[in-house]
Design a protein around this nucleic acid. Structure first.
Length: 546
DNA sequence: AACGAATCCAACCGCATTTGA
DNA sequence: CTCAAATGCGGTTGGATTCGT
């Protein structure tokens, strides 16, 4: 830090200096009972005085420091200085990869509870963590990267479901997380610790800075509808009420919808894997420590050599994934406003939108990028087809599967409302979960080269899920996990609005296949070119942990 | 080499909570 | 019980440094 010019050689501040106008102007000294307290950077002499004082008298009673030590610093400043720089066992230097990973996990769990996060990081201060996180946010915003790695998303999601299954649904008695001593969600830390070992199961998905139009689109997919979907501002009572009602009344609905989607998902995943040929960027080696994208692009890296602003891998170079959605006629999206990037999500995270319905959330300017695009596309398609109007406006044309999916969405909606506690960090994290998970496929979908089959862990796992013996429990669980990430389900929901519904219904109907086939530009699959297909690996990730 | 932008980080500020008289 | 002081916490600022052109 800089040294102020109005200090004596040893950094001490003498009375005559304190009273000098120079000190007041440049150092911002403030009055305190006639004594001008110094502000600004601490000097080594001041540090010494403070350390000696604390060693002698112990921490606390910070206001007495100024009185008894000769330091012209307010108690607050002394405490801060001690806590952030002088206290023993402080760990200096860049965060280690483990620490970074833990920060991400903790933030997903706690939100901006820096002090509590610091308690999990021995030797680290809340200020350090806060600065790191803020830097991380900026960096990843700029890069168009999601805040949370999918592993963390999945973990938070699973834990949320655990919380529900263990009374979370009627968890009115759940203590507000801030009052929790160490774990805000009544989730043992071992759960997060276990995450470290999950990399053998979870596909490693480096968070590629997908800045291609398709990537942007998927960022929008990840942020726009889901931000609204995940609005954390819904009141808990309402959430609980709706959760209970919906779970009690429509429990069987999604049962019908799930296999359909499962099939859809599985097929699409597999086809994407083979036809789109993106190199699904997971780390096949479970022995390799979990490597989050944040680490890769982090400013404080394991080797300590990389710069904050320098991507450390070729994968994060913007030009690499420039054509990740060859099947998608990106031009058709260009007529819509640019999809929102991560900024929208981050803004959402940092300042949740006003309480409102899904619709209001989803149609808010901040989050509407993708939905606008989808709506525009849907309407364009509807108008382009002669029969679309009758078809889309006719509710009887909705197939049972559609009904099931719609009901399914209700369940999903209810599920997620559980997580939209405005004060719950999971509300944040859950929002980011979508944001995080969505680009998985986006980042992973690239051109021509078919990836090795073994790299498609998500798809493989998904296939296993489909192949395995079906049970109501597994179906339900999987459905609950999957459908939150289903844009078609979202689009079919009531919050999406009737007009939207009509338009989208045409997409989800026969036109969907036709248009997707068209978009796929020669792809034999009917839905491969559909933008939301790129999201499917998200579901796979969720489905990997029934 | 110069300049501006980006980044980092220490410190401040304001508010909320806790504590104690 | 009330109130003021102390403390804790999170957000923000601003200067120094680094990076890119």
């Amino acid at each position: 830090m800089s040294r102020t010019t109005n200090e004596s050689e040893d950094g001490m501040l003498y009375k005559d200096q304190i009273d000098s106008p120079l000190m007041d102007e440049s150092n911002g000294g403030s009055g305190n009972g006639g004594i001008v307290l110094k502000k600004g950077p601490w000097t080594s002499a001041e540090d010494t005085i403070l350390v000696e004082y604390v060693n002698r008298h112990g921490e606390g009673n910070w206001n007495a420091v100024q009185k008894h030590s000769g330091l012209f610093r307010c108690g607050k400043s002394c405490r801060l200085r001690w806590a952030n720089h002088l206290r023993p066992n402080l760990k200096k230097g860049a965060f280690t990869p483990d620490e970074e990973r833990l920060i991400v996990e903790l933030h997903a769990k706690m939100g901006n509870k820096w002090a509590r996060m610091a308690a999990h990081l021995p030797g680290r201060t809340d200020n350090e963590i806060k600065n790191y996180w803020n830097t991380r946010i900026k960096r990843r915003q700029r890069a168009g990267l999601p805040l949370y790695p999918p592993e963390v998303c999945l973990q938070a999601f699973q834990e949320s479901q655990q919380g529900q299954s263990s009374g979370g649904i009627n968890g009115a008695d759940r203590v507000q997380h801030d009052s929790m001593p160490a774990n805000s969600f009544e989730i043992p830390d071992v759960v997060f610790d276990s995450l470290k070992g999950n990399n053998c199961v979870l596909p490693y998905v480096p968070e590629l800075p997908d800045i291609s139009p398709g990537g942007m689109l998927m960022k929008g997919l990840g942020s726009s509808p889901y931000c609204g979907f995940m609005s954390p501002t819904m009141h808990r009572q309402k959430r609980l009420r709706e959760s209970t009602a919906l779970f009690s009344t429509s429990g069987g609905s999604f049962k019908n919808g799930f296999p359909q989607f499962d099939q859809f998902q599985n097929d699409t995943c597999d086809k994407i894997a083979r036809t789109v040929g993106f190199p699904f960027p997971h780390d096949p080696d479970p022995t390799i420590p979990l490597s989050f994208g944040v680490i890769q692009g982090s400013h404080s890296l394991s080797n300590g050599n990389s710069s904050a602003s320098k991507p450390t891998t070729g994968a994060v170079k913007p030009e690499l994934p420039s054509l990740q959605y060859p099947e998608i006629d990106l031009g058709s999206w260009s007529t819509s406003p640019p999809p929102p990037l991560l900024e929208s999500v981050d803004a959402f995270i940092q300042s949740p939108p006003p309480v409102g319905t899904f619709e209001s959330d989803c149609t808010s300017p901040r989050n509407s990028g993708l939905l606008d695009a989808l709506l525009h596309e849907a309407k364009t398609l509807s108008s382009a087809n002669n029969h679309s109007s009758e078809k889309s406006s006719n509710s009887s044309s909705v197939t049972p599967g559609d009904v099931a999916e719609s009901s399914n969405l209700n369940i999903c909606e209810t599920e997620w409302e559980e997580y939209r506690d405005p004060i719950s960090p999971l509300g944040h994290s859950a929002t980011s979960m979508f944001n995080e998970c969505t680009p998985i496929s986006a980042s992973g979908s690239s051109l021509d080269e078919p990836p090795p089959a073994e790299t498609f862990t998500g798809c493989n796992v998904e296939s296993e899920l489909v192949d395995q013996a079906w049970t109501p429990d597994t179906e339900r669980e999987t459905a609950l996990q999957l459908d939150y990430t289903r844009p078609d389900a979202i689009l079919a929901s009531e919050w999406f609005g009737n007009s939207m519904h009509e338009s989208i219904a045409s997409l989800l109907g026969d036109d969907l296949a036709a248009e997707c086939k068209h978009l796929a530009s020669g792809s034999p699959t009917s839905n491969q070119g559909c933008p939301w297909n790129t999201m499917l690996p998200v579901c796979q990730i969720s489905a990997q942990h029934p």
